[in-house]
């Protein structure tokens, strides 16, 4: 009797239960679906971790597999075992991600110390450009300067800028367009000198 009481029933985490949970999820049972997703996550995380050395990549891969599972859940046939179906999705997604990664890494160059040293050189130039821009802004008519300050430097919306300046949205658009044109001419002239 004691033995009967002690005998463990089928655990929800038991892979033999996954098929039933998925069938119920296909019928719209949210609780079964949530339980299934939480239950299969460690199994999928283990597969993803074997494929990716980086933990963040493995987690990205895991989420990708979960999303694909969700998107393809109508393709599961409850008459067949669930685990090969799930493992198939995992394999395809991981292979696809690794291939994309390989393709991307072939096109990218990692930045090292020399690149950073070079990147710091234009910082002085940036300061000079900044001063030149402010000088050019100062030479603009008041309406145009205000339009640039509100719309481009403070990044206000047209409505906010109109409310703040008292100008209409149309007038602001025209003013900013003329200001940009004038600034371009002034800065190009400065470069030529």
């Amino acid at each position: 009797m004691a033995a009967t009481l002690m005998r463990p029933g089928p655990r929800p985490t038991d892979p033999s239960q996954w098929s039933q949970l998925m069938a119920r999820a296909q019928d719209g049972d949210a609780a079964a679906y949530g339980l299934l997703l939480r239950t299969v996550t460690p199994y999928l995380r283990a597969i993803a971790s074997r494929a990716h050395r980086n933990a963040a990549d493995a987690e990205d891969s895991l989420q990708d597999i979960l999303l694909t599972l969700h998107q393809m859940r109508h393709t599961y046939d409850p008459a067949r075992p669930f685990k090969p179906w799930l493992a198939g999705i995992a394999q395809h997604r991981i292979a696809d991600r690794l291939r994309h990664r390989l393709r991307r890494s072939a096109r990218e160059v990692s930045l090292d110390f020399e690149h950073e040293a070079l990147a710091s050189v234009p910082a002085a130039q940036t300061g000079m450009d900044h001063r030149a821009l402010h000088a050019a802004l100062g030479s603009l008519p008041e309406g145009q300067r205000q339009a640039v300050l509100l719309l481009k430097l403070q990044e206000l919306s047209l409505r906010e800028a109109a409310a703040s300046s008292g100008q209409s949205a149309g007038a602001l658009k025209v003013a900013v367009h003329r200001a940009i044109k004038a600034l371009r001419a002034l800065l190009l002239k400065g470069d030529d000198r």
Partner: peptide, 20 residues
């Protein structure tokens, strides 16, 4: 990036019945 438990909760929130 969304955390995995949040993703699971979002996916399980509205599992409309699907046509197999």
């Amino acid at each position: 990036m969304i955390e995995t438990p949040e993703l699971i909760a979002a996916l399980a929130a509205a599992p409309a019945k699907v046509r197999r």
